[in-house]
Computed example of a mutant assay.
Amino acid sequence: MSMNTPVRCSSWALSILLLTCLGMTAGCGGHAKSTRYYASAAGSNCYAKALPTTGEGGLAWGNTLGVARQKPLNNCTRYAGRSGGTPDTCKVVLAGCKE
């Protein structure tokens, strides 16, 4: 009977470990992923793209051209610093509205 005890304990430990791992991955599956750039939403007719001299910029959509120009500038200053660029040099390089 002493031979069955370690086997029984290890199977319980393995079962608990497996259930814990499954529970942790199931808990994270429902979280929404954050998007890096704004997607085109219904009613957003205007777009703009801002880029720094070095680093990452961004493209954004908005209901008006003014809103569309401000969003990528904010994104550009945020992401340019993270990507090794210069946030102070962000400029809107493309802007327009679809008809």
Rank of each mutant, 00 (worst) to 15 (best):
residue 47 Y to I: 07
residue 86 T to H: 09
residue 94 L to E: 06
residue 77 T to Q: 14
residue 43 G to P: 11
residue 52 P to E: 01
residue 46 C to M: 01
residue 1 M to D: 10
residue 6 P to R: 00
residue 50 A to V: 06
residue 65 L to T: 04
residue 37 Y to R: 08
residue 86 T to P: 11
residue 35 T to W: 08
residue 54 T to D: 10
residue 72 P to E: 00
residue 47 Y to D: 05
residue 58 G to S: 02
residue 90 C to F: 02
residue 95 A to W: 02
residue 68 A to N: 04
residue 6 P to D: 00
residue 77 T to E: 13
residue 41 A to T: 05
residue 60 A to D: 01
residue 44 S to T: 13
residue 55 G to Q: 00
residue 80 A to P: 11
residue 20 T to M: 11
residue 2 S to L: 12
residue 31 H to C: 13
residue 91 K to H: 09
residue 86 T to E: 08
residue 44 S to G: 11
residue 54 T to Y: 10
residue 74 N to Y: 08
residue 52 P to V: 01
residue 84 G to H: 01
residue 10 S to F: 14
residue 39 A to N: 14
residue 17 L to G: 14
residue 8 R to C: 09
residue 19 L to Y: 05
residue 25 T to P: 05
residue 56 E to F: 10
residue 27 G to V: 06
residue 31 H to N: 13
residue 35 T to M: 11
residue 57 G to T: 03
residue 9 C to M: 08
residue 74 N to K: 12
residue 50 A to G: 07
residue 28 C to F: 04
residue 32 A to V: 06
residue 68 A to S: 07
residue 80 A to E: 04
residue 9 C to T: 05
residue 29 G to T: 02
residue 88 D to S: 15
residue 30 G to C: 07
residue 68 A to Q: 04
residue 96 G to L: 01
residue 61 W to Y: 11
residue 32 A to M: 06
residue 34 S to N: 15
residue 40 S to L: 12
residue 47 Y to W: 11
residue 71 K to P: 07
residue 95 A to Y: 03
residue 62 G to L: 01
residue 46 C to V: 00
residue 66 G to Q: 14
residue 94 L to F: 03
residue 72 P to Y: 00
residue 48 A to Q: 04
residue 35 T to P: 13
residue 64 T to F: 02
residue 75 N to P: 12
residue 11 S to M: 14
residue 43 G to Y: 04
residue 23 G to W: 02
residue 53 T to A: 14
residue 77 T to W: 10
residue 95 A to V: 03
residue 69 R to I: 10
residue 12 W to F: 11
residue 52 P to W: 01
residue 13 A to Q: 13
residue 78 R to W: 13
residue 2 S to A: 13
residue 3 M to H: 08
residue 12 W to E: 07
residue 77 T to L: 12
residue 56 E to C: 12
residue 93 V to I: 06
